[in-house]
Design a protein around this nucleic acid. Structure first.
Length: 415
DNA sequence: TGTCCACAGGAAATACGGGGGT
DNA sequence: ACCCCCGTATTTCCTGTGGACA
């Protein structure tokens, strides 16, 4: 039997991949790679399928007044991640500006993106940059000066100004200063009619506000519900059309993805990620996308999620996880108590040359692992033999192995 | 029925680190 | 450059608790 050369094998593989290509344009499977205009175009198609109708209606009635010269109040929007808050708002505000123009109404909108946590200073600085009122400063300029800059730049603007503050709760320090400026001070200094739109994914953010700001802040509220399966199907259908070659998706696949995604989060981005992973797996296997491949992709995404979460976690949390895994391995199916887990953790710390935390702090680490469902723990009393949390690993064994291996690598240990 | 285990988990004290003001 | 202040992480201290066991 004659030996295939490496060239032959490589050529074969490439041929195979070409023949079974599934993905036509990878960019449409990852929003990060699309420019804003493309995202909005995509969104328009989704909206045309009457997704997010209720929200658009609400927005329209809220802002309708400006076409008559009214001054609508501010708006607070809540919704979990991946419910399309940012994109919907951007799209809506663009459209609004367009509608207003022929009526002679000047509407200007700016998107202040606070998707990464930042102190008041940086938030104000970014805002100033939006209006070209200031350069990007590292420091050395007082908050007051930034505020004045913004005010003077906006002083002779007329018409309406909508400031879309994305993820407000990310303003770490002096949130009150920041909001007080936007809500109370700025409107008094400028003639343009200011409408603030706050977006947040936490429902209770106004509760932790300075009461003086809060009482001053007249808000209209709007909630973005998670997408349901029907919405998700529309969204996915469009992606399939744009990103994949025709006839590579078996019937029922999109429905399956939509069902899975709506069932456990209703996050459109994750749904698209699931489609992407499925396409990738199918391409590798050289088949069309089948429902069973979707399930497989789901599992892999789950694993990826756990791994990613832990990879970026603080060292102590990693050590606690390693300890929990060690302990439950040693216990061989028997449930593990807190003390036992702590011993394993302390031992791990010793090997990893890491100062172990106190038992109290370890308890908190366990609680955190529980929240992310790496482990499951419940408090049980054994009468005179005390009370303890019974700890079970909440991840499959093979994933636990991978996690353990990763953590050991992190600490430069062997398994 | 009371005891007492082995922790849970809240509150306050303390250590730490980094940015900001001067 | 230096110090101070503030937010966060961790420790210390403490009280609470369900139920097996005597």
């Amino acid at each position: 039997m004659e030996q295939q050369t490496i060239r032959d094998r490589m050529a074969d593989r490439i041929q195979h991949m070409l023949r079974h290509a599934i993905i036509r344009d990878r960019r449409f499977l990852d929003d990060e790679q699309l420019i804003r205009a493309e995202q909005l175009a995509l969104l328009e198609e989704v909206f045309n399928a009457s997704v997010r109708d209720a929200e658009i209606q609400e927005l329209s009635s809220h802002f309708a007044g400006i076409l008559r010269g009214d001054h609508p109040c501010h708006l607070a929007i809540w919704g979990k991640t991946g419910t399309g808050k940012t994109l919907t708002l951007s799209y809506f505000l663009n459209l609004l500006t367009e509608f207003a123009k022929p009526k002679g109404v000047q509407v200007r909108h700016e998107h202040l993106d606070l998707s990464t946590p930042q102190p008041c200073f940086r938030a104000l600085n970014n805002l100033a940059c939006l209006f070209k009122a200031s350069k990007r400063h590292k420091k050395g300029i007082s908050l007051e000066e930034l505020m004045v800059n913004i005010e003077t730049t906006l002083a002779d603007v007329s018409g309406y100004l909508v400031i879309f503050v994305d993820e407000v709760d990310n303003v770490r320090r002096d949130r009150d200063t920041f909001l007080k400026f936007l809500v109370r001070r700025l409107p008094q200094k400028i003639s343009v009619k200011l409408i603030l739109v706050f977006v947040s994914n936490r429902l209770n953010w106004p509760d932790q506000l300075d009461p003086r700001v809060k009482s001053f802040l007249k808000l209209n509220e709007l909630v973005f519900k998670p997408y349901d399966a029907v919405d998700l199907k529309h969204i996915l259908d469009i992606r399939v059309l744009k990103a994949l070659h025709p006839n590579t998706v078996e019937p029922g696949v999109v429905e399956r993805i939509a069902a899975l995604a709506s069932h456990d989060h209703g996050d459109a981005r994750k749904a698209v990620a699931l489609l992407a992973k499925s396409a990738y797996l199918a391409e590798k296997a050289g088949t069309r996308i089948t429902p069973s491949i979707v399930d497989e992709a789901m599992d892999e995404l789950h694993c990826d999620r756990y791994m990613a979460l832990l990879r970026t976690a603080p060292v102590q949390l990693k050590a606690a996880m390693a300890g929990a895994i060690d302990a439950s391995r040693r216990a061989k199916g028997r449930v593990v108590g807190t003390g036992e887990a702590y011993d394993a953790y302390a031992k791990f710390c010793q090997r990893a040359v890491l100062q172990p935390l106190s038992g109290r702090a370890f308890g908190d680490l366990l609680a955190e692992l529980d929240v992310h469902s790496f482990i499951r723990s419940k408090v049980v009393s054994h009468g005179r033999r005390g009370r303890t949390r019974e700890i079970t690993l909440d991840v499959p064994d093979d994933l636990a192995d991978r996690i353990h291996e990763m953590i050991c690598m992190d600490f430069d240990l062997r398994g």
